[in-house]
């Protein structure tokens, strides 16, 4: 089970990422749980598998339109699909990696796996109740899915 401080770490990570990389703040929606079934995801999902002291996954899922704008904000002119996937993996990686500041070295993070999840559902690899942190950036919505046991 996650504590408030632990989830706060991920929320802060997301806020920090957008403030620094996109130079535009992200608004965090009220977090919620997935009590039954699987979380709904956007077109692309970057998954970081977590092992070591915790087990599970940290995912960042976002629609194509948002990734496109995000790339442009980062002065990246190449908005190809490859780069969008690259970006979503990098966001997931950065937020998870930053979490080690609080969780320590034993919070082992994998290299990102990027999935095309258009209209689909994402099944987290563990049985823990996933926490969903909605992120609203400009007119777009994305989600951070934290699923740790």
């Amino acid at each position: 089970m996650l504590t408030e401080a632990e989830i706060k770490t991920f929320i802060d990570g997301a806020i920090h990422y957008f403030a620094v990389s996109a130079r535009q703040p992200v608004a965090v929606g009220s977090p919620y749980l997935i009590t039954d079934g699987t979380p709904t995801v956007h077109e692309y999902t970057g998954v970081i598998a977590i092992s070591g002291r915790r087990n599970g996954a940290v995912c960042f899922t976002a629609p194509r339109s948002m990734l496109m704008v995000l790339l442009m904000r980062m002065n990246e002119t190449d908005t190809s699909e490859t780069n969008m996937k690259d970006l979503i993996g990098e966001v997931a990686n950065t937020i998870s990696g930053n979490a080690r500041r609080d969780f320590g070295k034993e919070f082992v993070i994998s290299v990102p796996t990027v999935m095309e999840t258009e209209g689909g559902k994402f099944r987290p690899p563990v049985t823990a109740r996933p926490f969903i942190i909605p992120l609203n950036w400009r007119s777009h919505s994305a989600k951070l899915i934290v699923c740790l046991e």
Binding site: E4, A27, V28, L33, R129
Partner: peptide, 18 residues
């Protein structure tokens, strides 16, 4: 109020569920 202020609530909800 912003979304982050709901964090303690979600954690408590999770706790209550558990």
């Amino acid at each position: 109020l912003s979304g982050g202020d709901f964090l303690p609530l979600v954690v408590k909800l999770d706790d209550l569920f558990t």
